[in-house]
Design a protein around this nucleic acid. Structure first.
Lengths: 237, 237
DNA sequence: AAGTGGTCTAGACCACCGT
DNA sequence: CGGTGGTCTAGACCACTTC
């Protein structure tokens, strides 16, 4: 059973997506949601906080909660892991499996994954397409002590959906380090670009709720097709 | 008077930075902070939420709040606007003013700033250095209807510190769109790189608490010196 | 002055971690 | 089992916007 504030957030999010508030461009008041969903006002506020952080709305004290217009322009929202699968749910996301094997972590990888050298890790290399265009090259490592099982069929689809829904993995938090770099000629071939073209590179470190690193990965994105979106809230600084 | 949860968050943040919890790598319990600061537990939780979002700590139900080890590696934390000034407070941040003038917004700029064409906007172009290395080229536009005054002296220092502290501007939220692109030869000269080298490009749209856009800017970052950091929390999806 | 979001409290009960 | 974080409530009062 999902907590109430998530249920309420989901309902309101669905309303926004289906343009229920298009006339006023404004949500209902907190008190109105409290009555509507039979929850306390604090629970409503927690739900709205989630929508604020996802970039759907902004709050103005004394006035209301307003819908943000330029929310979706094909950007990958950094607020969600699993960006491509979520943000492009209305587009065709495909994966081409380039490599898949079980290996032992060397010294460098062990440092990045916070494990001992020699630990068994799944190695997955995929080329991801959106609407038929090459989108990014994703090289991932999964600690086998934590991710007990993977196979080619799973890996061709959404790995995270499997880990969360089937393996019931308690995914907690992630660091992402974002930079730019040259494309190697091999990467350029895969993405349909030229060697030394720019690349948008994201290093991911993903942890379980108990802090253990189960996934370390690097995504090399097509610089023309991929823009990341970060929405920030200045409250709390 | 800052709200209590911000004060508490500031205190604990300071404790973390000064290695008060180094022995255990763990914060005090929520109840202990509630007693220590004479606030309710909910206020403590709100303070800790801020530290979670800033990437200082992570929470484990039933166990405690733990400090994250690899927090600072010279990255620009996307959780804060004013990244360079904050994240590199222990390093030398300098600005070279390349251009500064009052102009009228053309059609394109007006669209980006949500204002009418012909609106007066300050135009600021700066080259930013960290520890003497060229770091990024920042091209900014400020709506003069909202940012009443700027001059060369202010612009050579931290614009945001001035707007927040002196002009008491109520800064609310921001969108950032992150991508990679080629460097132009002019940009390459400024950054000490070569034309067509990669660049990490960030477009900013910054709004007041009432939703009005007061700042639109583009930062072109040195791809070797700049990495952005995003910490994510999987709670609430 | 009325409406609406922002802060804060005190307390209840649940879920999970560790011993 | 006790300790600790997670969810939720009902209500009070403040700050800001709108009229």
């Amino acid at each position: 059973m999902a907590p109430k504030y998530l249920q309420v957030a989901g309902q309101i999010e669905s309303d926004i997506i289906h343009h229920v508030y298009q006339k006023t461009n404004k949500l209902l008041t907190e008190d109105e949601y409290a009555v509507k969903y039979q929850v306390s006002r604090n629970t409503v506020r927690k739900a709205i906080d989630i929508l604020v952080n996802k970039g759907y709305v902004y709050q103005v004290q004394g006035s209301g909660v307003f819908i943000r217009n330029h929310h979706n322009r094909g950007h990958v929202n950094l607020e969600r892991l699993q960006g491509v699968t979520n943000d492009f749910s209305d587009r065709l996301v495909e994966n081409k499996l380039l490599d898949f094997k079980l290996i032992e972590a060397d010294e460098d990888l062990a440092v990045n994954m916070g494990c001992k050298a020699g630990t068994s890790v799944y190695y997955v290399k995929r080329l991801r397409y959106v609407d038929g265009d090459p989108f990014s090259i994703e090289t991932s490592y999964f600690n086998k002590d934590l991710v007990k099982y993977l196979d080619e069929n799973i890996v061709k689809k959404s790995i995270y959906n499997y880990l969360r829904n089937d393996q019931k993995l308690a995914i907690g938090f992630a660091d992402r380090i974002i930079g730019a770099d040259y494309l190697t000629s091999e990467q350029a071939d895969l993405l349909g670009l030229k060697a030394n073209d720019p690349a948008l590179v994201v290093d991911n470190t993903v942890c379980l709720t108990n802090g253990a690193i189960f996934d370390y990965s690097q995504s090399v994105h097509h610089f023309k097709h991929v823009k990341l979106l970060k929405v920030s809230n200045m409250k709390g600084s």
